[in-house]
Design a protein around this nucleic acid. Structure first.
Length: 892
RNA sequence: GGGCGGAUAGCUCAGUCGGGAGAGCGCAGCCCUUACAAGGCUGAGGUCACAGGUUCGAUCCCUGUUCCGCCUACCA
């Protein structure tokens, strides 16, 4: 297997499907139960059943997958539980649209038939996003796929509802709620999206029945004139001298209706805004509803749930609310009561599912009393039982939780968990987890189940424990609750995270996760939010197809800096596709340099390791430590960056080049064996470290390598993450010196326009005896990589004739004789530029060291460092000046 | 109205014990060198938004200003 030749470029299509199938069949994604290993568990934020994979899913799933694979390699028993959300309103909308195509609607087919059709639709098209997640490589335990409408989860929903009801934390009542006239259902506050819209502020005059204190009328300002038909009072501030005489005395004859309404005083009314008098429509405005409760005012609904004016609207009955607005304004105008109209910016609330303008409406609904649940959920975060990453989001969480309002959970749709409450003819309510046969109050057997269903988020709130089998006491719950990490987007902190926290604390006694990682939002390259209407959407599936899934995943990981939006441009993905290819070719190189039939042997003796081997082993240790630390801290970008640098700029750029001679056997068998061993080891570990981010290609390449017994036939994620080994600090530093020397020569060659294929001599001076030895030992490398013909190294000497100089690290003076190429002007320019740089550095350090305050107050080590730095600068400066003198001399 | 975050190289961004400014991409020059042109080598480019303050010393800490995002809110 080891001698299989690879294509010159990486072709993702040939390998991805194969490994997806392997992961599924090999069972690596499914945790052991019971297990002696420590647990690591996550629940996936269940995507909508109606959804298709978008960048947000792709990012979040990639990051979770990195965690899952990494933790498996670190020896954890990992459960990553996948699932889908039934998305009540959205799904119902989809199926209703299909019905409409057939010329039907849900009322005509009936509830039972409609639900049947939804399930049928779910079976046919509901699995799309799951397939797409698999395509992305998500290593979820697909054997535990859950759906919020499953029997088990439905049981949990009923249980929770019944218990909360018994505890008095669920109640039913007439309150004002957000109503979507298109979806025909109530919405929670969160399901309304506000947008600034250009509107008008209408000033309308309301005449008094009889003058009071010389006042004959009041002018009120409103953005919604049509609601005036339902006004039941006008409110003014009790401190407002203009109006306070009217409070409780004046009676307004409401225009267009003839009804009489009172003038009330309430300190919530602003004296500065508008006219200081505000109309009160309790049935169609949240504030007005609150005020009406304070003053015991009646509420009059003037439109039906379809947002069409009803019988209380008199002559306007039958008009849609926007038409009614026009007509009311016209009516007032005719009466001379419309005083003025101003342009005005208003925050208009719209249904987040269908964008229809919502109508605040008085209605009988079910609510969760959230206060008692929020307390413990807040405390869990205060006490660090749950941590947000980045921490800043905790403020957002607290802010909302501390100002939370009761949660309207009933929805007037058919698709969802039907509320487990039954009504008898006498209006008694029976709530039970299992279907009752009679009214619990009067014993009547004529009971009917409440027609409403629950908000989809109600079932999502139970997700971390309902998916593990609650209310049964399962092994899964014992092993995996509380879960370790929840990774999600900031925009559902309120919708979902906060509610899971409340339910988890209340029913399980423990917060549902210890870490909440909030990932960034993806925007387009210009920083705009992606949307279909703007046409700037990047389709993850297209990207995977075009550049390979691994390149796409790596891009997402490397851009996932904490606390910042991700601006994604397609070129980035192409760039990391190149990175994939680089790795692929590193594999090619590795395989091409192994003896036929090579089998991994014992760890070679230290003597058979070269300096380059020790250097790359040391760098490997650093890479392991840095990537692990980064992933543990959710710094996916850093992990990816470290790997990129290690693979490309250390392994490929240097180690591969430095190891070539050894691998060819130019330095004897021992070294050949040693180098082959180190190369394989470094490359295998690289694949392991890359695996969580790039699972497909790493599995593929690993399978080509000569494997040891424990590695055969296993997925990389079933193998241990590499552990750092011994650091060769000295050798590594010496190697770096040599590398810098090579860079110095290359630099001279380029600056002097030495042709690529020309070889030059190189003369080095160093006072450091050990360093001279190191350079000598690496003569072959220097010759090969810096294109040097002959290398001489000595303690010091006269400036070699016609040569160009540079100072490499360790203070090594480097001379390259270039009789035929030398251009003294260019050379002088080079040296002077170096000298200028050095001089400004010199000035800075000098200033510091001459400042007694610095020398006295700064820590001794910092002062020492600066002194050492000064010495280095002085030394280098002297050498550069020597070089410049030399040029002056030879030119005369 | 309140809150949060951002302003560092042409672009996108790293830079949490305050002590020599970094990466990727892009750009320029030279190269098809036996893993890779989806490549190699080399290089140019930044008063770290502005103004103060603390400090021996500030990209980093504090205050204010400007600009840009986002979240949230009952001035009709």
């Amino acid at each position: 297997m080891s001698q299989k030749t690879l294509d010159k470029t990486y072709e993702p299509k040939n390998v991805e499907e194969k490994w997806s199938a392997f992961w599924l069949s090999s069972g690596v994604n499914t945790p052991e139960l019971p297990s002696k290993k420590p647990s690591f568990s996550m629940v996936i934020p269940p995507p909508n059943i109606t959804g298709a994979l978008h960048l947000g899913h792709a990012l979040n799933s990639t990051l979770q997958d990195v965690l899952a694979r990494y933790k498996r390699m670190k020896g954890f028993n990992v459960l990553w539980l996948p699932g889908i959300d039934h998305a009540g309103i959205a799904t119902q909308n989809v199926v209703e649209r299909k019905l409409a195509e057939e010329g039907l609607d849900r009322h005509r087919v009936g509830r039972e038939e409609f639900i049947k059709r939804v399930w049928k639709w779910k079976e046919e098209s509901g699995g799309t996003i799951i397939k797409q997640l698999k395509r992305l490589g998500a290593s979820c335990d697909w054997t535990r796929l859950r759906f919020t409408m499953d029997d088990g989860l439905s049981k949990a929903v009923r249980e929770v509802f019944a218990r909360l009801y018994c505890e008095g934390l669920i109640y039913r009542g007439d309150y004002i709620i957000n109503w979507c006239p298109r979806c025909d259902t109530a919405l929670s506050d969160l399901e309304v999206q506000f947008e600034e819209t250009g509107g008008k502020l209408y000033y309308m005059e309301y005449p008094l029945k009889e003058p009071v204190a010389g006042i004959t009328s009041l002018v009120v300002a409103t953005t919604r004139p049509e609601t005036m038909l339902g006004d039941t009072a006008v409110a003014v501030n009790p401190d407002d001298d203009r109006y306070k005489a009217l409070i409780g005395k004046a009676v307004i004859r409401l225009p267009l209706t003839g009804r009489d309404i009172p003038v009330i005083g309430d300190s919530a009314v602003s004296m500065e805004f508008g006219t200081g008098a505000v109309k009160i429509t309790p049935a169609h405005d949240f504030n007005d509803f609150e005020m009406a409760r304070r003053h015991d005012l009646p509420a009059i609904r003037v439109m039906g749930l379809n947002a069409i004016m009803n019988e209380n609207a008199g002559e306007f009955m039958g008009l849609d609310r926007f038409k009614a607005r026009k007509k009311v304004v016209e009516g007032l105008e005719k009466l001379g009561l419309l005083k003025k109209v101003e342009d005005y910016k208003i925050m208009l609330g719209a249904c987040y599912r269908c964008s229809t303008v919502v109508e605040p409406t008085l209605s009988k609904q079910w609510f969760v009393k959230v206060g008692p649940l929020a307390g413990p959920a807040i405390k869990a975060v205060e006490d660090n039982e749950t941590k947000f990453i980045p921490k800043g989001w905790e403020n957002t969480y607290f802010e909302w939780m501390r100002n939370i309002r009761d949660w309207c959970i009933s929805r007037q749709i058919w698709w969802g968990h039907r509320i487990p409450a039954w009504h008898c003819k006498d209006g008694h309510v029976t709530v039970a987890a299992v279907d009752p046969v009679k009214c619990s109050t009067c014993g009547s057997r004529h009971i009917e189940q409440d027609p409403d269903v629950l908000d989809t988020w109600f079932s999502s709130a139970l997700w971390p424990f309902s998916t593990l089998g609650w209310p049964n006491e399962t092994e899964e719950l014992k092993a995996f609750y509380p879960t370790s990490t929840l990774s999600t987007s900031f925009d559902i902190i309120f919708f979902w995270v906060a509610r899971m926290m409340m339910m988890g604390k209340h029913f399980m006694g423990a917060a549902p996760f210890s870490d909440v990682y909030i990932h960034a939002l993806i925007r387009d390259a210009q920083g705009q939010k992606m949307s279909k209407s703007k046409g700037n959407v990047i389709d993850p599936l297209v990207m995977m197809e075009k550049y390979g899934t691994d390149a796409f995943r790596f891009t997402l990981a490397v851009l996932a800096a904490q606390g910042r939006d991700i601006k994604l441009a397609e070129e980035r993905i192409a760039g990391y596709r190149n990175f994939c290819n680089k790795i692929w070719n590193l594999a090619r190189f590795t395989l091409m340099n192994l003896e036929p039939g090579y089998t991994p042997g014992e760890e070679p003796a230290e003597e058979s390791l070269g300096m380059a081997d020790k250097w790359i082993l040391t760098r490997r240790n650093a890479c392991i430590a840095e990537t692990s630390a980064a992933i543990e801290e959710y710094k996916f970008d850093e992990a990816a960056r470290v790997l990129y640098r290690f693979v490309w700029h250390e392994l490929c750029d240097w180690y591969v080049e430095l190891s070539k001679q050894d691998l060819k056997g130019e330095n004897g068998t021992d070294r050949k064996v040693g180098a082959a061993h180190v190369l394989i080891k470094a490359f295998k570990d690289t694949l392991k470290m890359l695996h969580p981010i790039m699972p497909f290609m790493t599995e593929e390449l690993f399978s080509y390598l000569p494997l040891t017994l424990g590695e055969e036939g296993k997925s990389l994620m079933a193998l241990p993450y590499p552990a750092p080994g011994r650091d060769y600090t000295h050798e590594a530093a010496q190697m770096e010196n040599v590398m810098d020397l090579i860079r110095a020569v290359r630099n001279i060659r380029t600056d002097m326009n030495v042709p690529q294929d020309a070889r030059t001599d190189c003369i080095c001076f160093s006072k450091d005896a050990r360093l001279r030895e190191v350079i000598k030992e690496n003569e072959k490398h220097i010759k090969q990589l810096a294109k040097v013909r002959s290398l001489t190294i000595s303690e010091s000497g006269p400036h070699p004739k016609d040569s160009v100089s540079a100072i490499a690290s360790g203070g090594v003076e480097v001379f390259v004789p270039l009789a035929e190429h030398i251009d003294f002007d260019v050379e002088a320019g080079r040296l002077r530029k170096e000298l200028d740089k050095l001089t400004s550095e010199y000035e800075g350090v000098k200033k510091k060291l001459e400042n007694p305050e610095f020398v006295n107050k700064a820590p001794a080590e910092v002062v020492e460092k600066e002194k050492a730095r000064m010495e280095g600068i002085m030394e280098k400066r002297a050498k550069l000046e020597k070089g410049l003198d030399h040029i002056r001399n030879v030119r005369g």
